[in-house]
């Protein structure tokens, strides 16, 4: 869609588009194309020499128990992070939406963690949950008698990275849920109240359905976040351990490419990731289309 009234020039618009398109070509499309090509080769790290292997890189990936584990780990990690972050975001938003006094203070306190880098969030949670040092680890040991040890226990390590990842993302969900809640016409809620619906019923029958587009949008955003932006958390805490229990796909791509120097396999993993983002984006786009229709 463009304006009915437009400027007349053939070259100028392309000139305006050129910087963005150039950056995209050089740093997005070319590398993406290269990743697809390299996925079919073995690559010598120093010379960049290519050796055709066809689909071998993919075959070996799916045969490797480590990669299959990474897929599973990623699914669990993304689902848990998205669920926790969304639940807490909604929880805070509902509460802040309800109170009158102190709303600004509460809102401020809920938003700022968004500004903390995932890598630093990782450092903070490592300090909290370090088996030897951490305050929370100590509380868990003393209070619950739980032998907390994320360096050894897969579940504990997963909890550690999920907590750090969700902590940072709660703010994002909070902002959107609060905006969503405040956009609900008061009159609808009042009408429901007049019909005798209590706060609980109103939440269930009126508010939640009206929030569902926001929730769906957030689900996609949270999955994308958990999938891609959490590299820093894993890198600063568990480094994929113990026993690969927190080795998410993005971490493995980096590890195999830059620690293992297996560029062919890393490229093949990139292609698989690309397929996953494409499907997530399609999902998001279909939703966006719908939302545009809602908006009329």
């Amino acid at each position: 869609m463009s304006k009915r009234v437009t400027f007349r020039s053939r070259l100028l618009p392309w000139f305006l588009l050129a910087p963005q398109l150039l950056v995209l070509l050089l740093f997005f499309f070319w590398p993406a194309g290269q990743a697809i090509v390299q996925a079919l080769f073995m690559v010598e790290p120093f010379s960049g020499e290519l050796q055709w292997v066809g689909l071998l890189n993919f075959e070996q990936l799916f045969q490797s128990s480590a990669y299959r584990q990474a897929i599973l780990v990623t699914i669990v990690f993304c689902a848990a992070t998205a669920a926790l972050a969304m639940f807490l975001g909604l929880f805070l938003a509902v509460l802040v939406d309800r109170v009158v006094r102190g709303r600004t203070v509460y809102r401020t306190l809920a938003i700022w963690p968004y500004a903390v880098a995932p890598a630093i969030a990782g450092a903070l949670f490592l300090f909290l949950l370090d088996p030897a040092m951490g305050v929370l680890a100590f509380a868990l040991r003393q209070g619950l008698g739980l032998a907390w040890d994320p360096s050894l226990d897969a579940t504990h390590a997963t909890i550690l990275v999920v907590l750090a990842a969700a902590w940072k993302q709660v703010a994002y969900n909070f902002v959107f849920f609060l905006a969503g809640l405040q956009a609900i016409p008061r009159i609808l809620i009042e009408a429901a109240a007049l019909d005798g619906a209590g706060p609980w019923q109103r939440s269930l029958r009126v508010i939640l359905p009206l929030l569902s587009p926001t929730a769906f949008f957030l689900l996609v955003m949270n999955l994308v976040y958990a999938f891609f932006d959490t590299f820093g958390i894993v890198a600063t805490t568990t480094e994929g351990g113990p026993g690969g229990a927190t080795r998410i796909l993005v971490f493995k791509v980096w590890e195999d490419g830059f620690v293992g120097l297996d560029l062919g396999s890393s490229a093949a993993q990139s292609v698989i990731l690309m397929a996953i983002v494409v499907s997530l984006t399609v999902l998001q786009f279909r939703f966006l289309e719908k939302r545009v229709q809602y908006a009329g």
């Binding site: 995209l24 740093f27 891609f228 990731l273 690309m274 983002v277």
Partner: peptide
Amino acid sequence: GIFISLMLPVEVRIVPTYEV
């Protein structure tokens, strides 16, 4: 072209982007 770039976060093209 611009829209598709949404689908290419740096993590999926990490080694070749580095090369460029």
